[in-house]
Simulated scan of single mutants.
Amino acid sequence: MIAIFSDTHSSDGHELEGEALNAAREADTVVHAGDFTSEAALEAFQKECATLFPVHGNADSAAIRERLPTARVVEAGGVRFAVTHRRDGGEMGLAMFGRSRDADVVVSGHTHRPTVIETEDCLLLNPGSHAQPRGHRPGFAVLEESEVGLEGEIREPDGTLVESFEIPQK
């Protein structure tokens, strides 16, 4: 299983609860698209996850920016993920970022709004914020291998389904 998070915005912990906490603990791979805000939040996430691939966001402290990259590529479940917090240029900028990294999926954060957008080149996935949704539904994403590739869901921390999607293997 792959679990994807973003925008924790915490001064003292991971802010995970319910199904979001279970997903972080049970996933083989966890991706975080930035804005932990504090080292305490980053370290709390690291303690819960077997394998964490984070990037830093615009609200992260200087200490986190020194520890984490702005962008990275993660290969998991037969899919190539390009991860960033945000990109200028909206959907087009994110799609170009993905294309430049030969990605199947671009994971981003920043808006706090759970979103799945299919583009010509790749899938754009923003899991939303599990901790500070800022007027949107709280969210995180879970992807599981299937016969067609990966089957994904954006869920609320209590497990409520927000949206389902598929990522076919190439």
Results as ranks from 00 to 15, higher is better:
residue 76 A to M: 06
residue 150 L to N: 11
residue 106 V to R: 02
residue 73 V to H: 07
residue 166 E to P: 05
residue 152 G to E: 02
residue 25 R to C: 04
residue 60 D to C: 08
residue 125 L to A: 11
residue 125 L to N: 14
residue 36 F to E: 10
residue 158 D to N: 15
residue 168 P to C: 09
residue 82 A to L: 00
residue 50 A to H: 06
residue 47 K to Q: 10
residue 14 H to K: 07
residue 95 A to V: 11
residue 68 L to C: 09
residue 80 R to C: 08
residue 21 L to K: 15
residue 88 D to V: 05
residue 13 G to N: 15
residue 33 A to C: 09
residue 54 P to G: 00
residue 19 E to L: 01
residue 4 I to Y: 08
residue 132 Q to Y: 14
residue 90 G to E: 12
residue 110 H to K: 03
residue 112 H to K: 12
residue 91 E to F: 00
residue 119 T to G: 10
residue 168 P to H: 09
residue 5 F to W: 04
residue 144 E to W: 05
residue 81 F to H: 10
residue 122 C to M: 03
residue 74 V to R: 08
residue 92 M to P: 00
residue 40 A to C: 05
residue 20 A to H: 02
residue 22 N to Q: 15
residue 162 V to A: 02
residue 125 L to R: 07
residue 33 A to L: 03
residue 104 D to H: 11
residue 64 I to G: 07
residue 120 E to H: 15
residue 156 E to S: 10
residue 87 R to P: 02
residue 137 R to V: 03
residue 27 A to S: 13
residue 157 P to N: 11
residue 18 G to L: 04
residue 161 L to M: 11
residue 6 S to N: 10
residue 83 V to S: 09
residue 30 V to G: 04
residue 3 A to Q: 04
residue 82 A to H: 02
residue 28 D to P: 02
residue 22 N to P: 01
residue 83 V to C: 01
residue 103 A to G: 09
residue 59 A to H: 00
residue 15 E to P: 01
residue 53 F to R: 11
residue 97 F to K: 07
residue 129 S to I: 01
residue 165 F to P: 04
residue 97 F to Y: 11
residue 143 L to E: 06
residue 130 H to C: 12
residue 129 S to Y: 00
residue 91 E to C: 01
residue 98 G to T: 06
residue 88 D to M: 11
residue 57 G to V: 04
residue 115 T to F: 01
residue 74 V to K: 03
residue 121 D to I: 06
residue 85 H to W: 06
residue 144 E to Q: 12
residue 115 T to M: 02
residue 108 S to C: 13
residue 22 N to T: 14
residue 36 F to T: 07
residue 165 F to G: 06
residue 139 G to K: 03
residue 57 G to S: 08
residue 9 H to N: 13
residue 122 C to L: 02
residue 2 I to P: 02
residue 126 N to M: 04
residue 102 D to F: 14
residue 71 A to F: 05
residue 12 D to A: 15
residue 138 P to G: 05
residue 158 D to S: 13
residue 20 A to P: 03
residue 170 K to A: 14
residue 59 A to V: 05
residue 99 R to Y: 01
residue 123 L to V: 14
residue 84 T to I: 13
residue 88 D to H: 10
residue 149 G to Q: 07
residue 113 R to E: 14
residue 139 G to Q: 07
residue 44 A to H: 08
residue 5 F to Y: 15
residue 66 E to M: 03
residue 62 A to G: 00
residue 94 L to T: 14
residue 17 E to A: 14
residue 15 E to Q: 14
residue 58 N to Y: 04
residue 67 R to Y: 02
residue 25 R to Q: 15
residue 42 L to Y: 13
residue 123 L to F: 07
residue 27 A to W: 09
residue 33 A to V: 07
residue 81 F to A: 11
residue 107 V to H: 08
residue 29 T to Q: 00
